[in-house]
């Protein structure tokens, strides 16, 4: 397991006034090299959860195991190595850029971790490439780039630390739809080709459905669902329970599944897959393919 939470609770230390987004008895596991979606509404604790991954926040009870590190309540151990290996991208990361050239911003992380300047520069240019930007961006002022480009630079500034796990808090927020899709494709490539574990916090489930291999749904600081996309689709009530909007594709598939008896099938969620399935159903007789195949409800 690359991430393992054991009965983790967390409360912000202001006891009464603005208590929010705390965690209550969270136990969960994330497999190395997977692409995980964490869904929840504002205040469900999803961002708090994310900040436990590299010790920015430490549990008030329970234990967080990340890679070879264990963080328990009150632990004060050295976190530098953990922070290098877990890259955390906060919301609107472009607002956290501060250097006057893209290259300096990209090198900031590695230099802090003692990487020699030459190597840091190498990494900077590689990270940019991974995000689909070329070296011509290196000398540019990050504040003169477009919003989407700034966001990519900010994510690249985490990649230069060469983390094993990269965790992002609503990375697509306020981007235009095509930039959103491109960014998610890039993240998916990082997972598939570079072997990174990618964890994305989101409230837009639909756009992540093609990429996420497993899902965690948060409500009031506790995970109320952990499982595969297929299980998430079958147990759509968890999404409504968490106050999340149900994506159209899930609504459609489940309605078709009930009316046509497709509940045991692997759900089709993209427009193309559904159209294909419907055309097939029309061509041939309606026969559920995996009837009694033993797959059953894995939830």
């Amino acid at each position: 397991m690359s991430v393992h939470f054991e009965q983790v609770s967390f409360a912000y230390d202001d006891r009464s006034l603005w208590r929010h987004g705390a965690l209550a008895d969270v136990s969960l596991s994330i497999t190395p090299g997977s692409f995980v979606g964490i869904a929840g509404i504002t205040g469900s604790g999803k961002s708090t959860l994310l900040q436990h991954l590299n010790g920015i926040l430490k549990p008030t009870a329970g234990r967080v195991k990340v890679l070879d590190f264990t963080i328990g309540a009150g632990d004060k151990g050295p976190l530098r190595e953990l922070r290098r290996r877990v890259g955390l991208v906060f919301q609107f990361p472009e607002q956290q850029l501060f250097e006057d050239t893209v290259e300096k911003d990209l090198c900031f992380g590695p230099l802090n971790f003692g990487v020699p300047l030459e190597e840091a520069k190498d990494r900077a240019s590689r990270a940019l490439e991974m995000l689909g930007l070329d070296d011509s961006f290196l000398p540019r002022n990050p504040f003169h780039l477009s919003g989407g480009q700034m966001r990519k630079v900010a994510i690249a500034s985490i990649l230069t630390m060469e983390p094993d796990i990269i965790a992002l808090d609503e990375p697509t927020a306020t981007l235009d739809p095509q930039s959103r899709a491109e960014l998610l494709q890039l993240l998916s490539r990082l997972q598939r080709e570079e072997g990174k574990t990618v964890i994305v916090v989101t409230h837009r489930i639909e756009e992540m459905l093609p990429y996420a291999e497993s899902w965690i749904v948060m409500k009031d600081g506790t995970p109320i669902f952990q499982g595969t996309p297929a299980e998430l689709v079958r147990e759509e009530r968890h999404l409504s329970e968490a106050g999340l909007a149900l994506p159209e594709c899930i609504r459609l598939w489940n309605q078709l599944a009930i009316k046509l008896g497709l509940e045991q099938e692997e759900p089709c969620l993209s427009a193309e897959a559904i159209a294909e399935r419907v055309a097939a159903l029309y061509e041939h007789e309606v026969h559920p393919p995996t009837w009694g195949g033993g797959a059953g409800d894995a939830g």
Binding site: E248, R251, L252, Q255, L256, K259, L260, A271, E272, I274, A275, E276, V278, A279, L281, Y282, V286
Partner: peptide
């Protein structure tokens, strides 16, 4: 996608309308 497979539907107001049309069609 449906249209390119020879199935013509009306986009309607929401996905529920599409779903009903689809079920009727099948």
């Amino acid at each position: 996608e449906l249209s390119s497979r020879g199935i013509e539907l009306d986009p309607g107001q929401d996905i529920e309308e599409v779903s009903e049309q689809l079920c009727r069609y099948i």
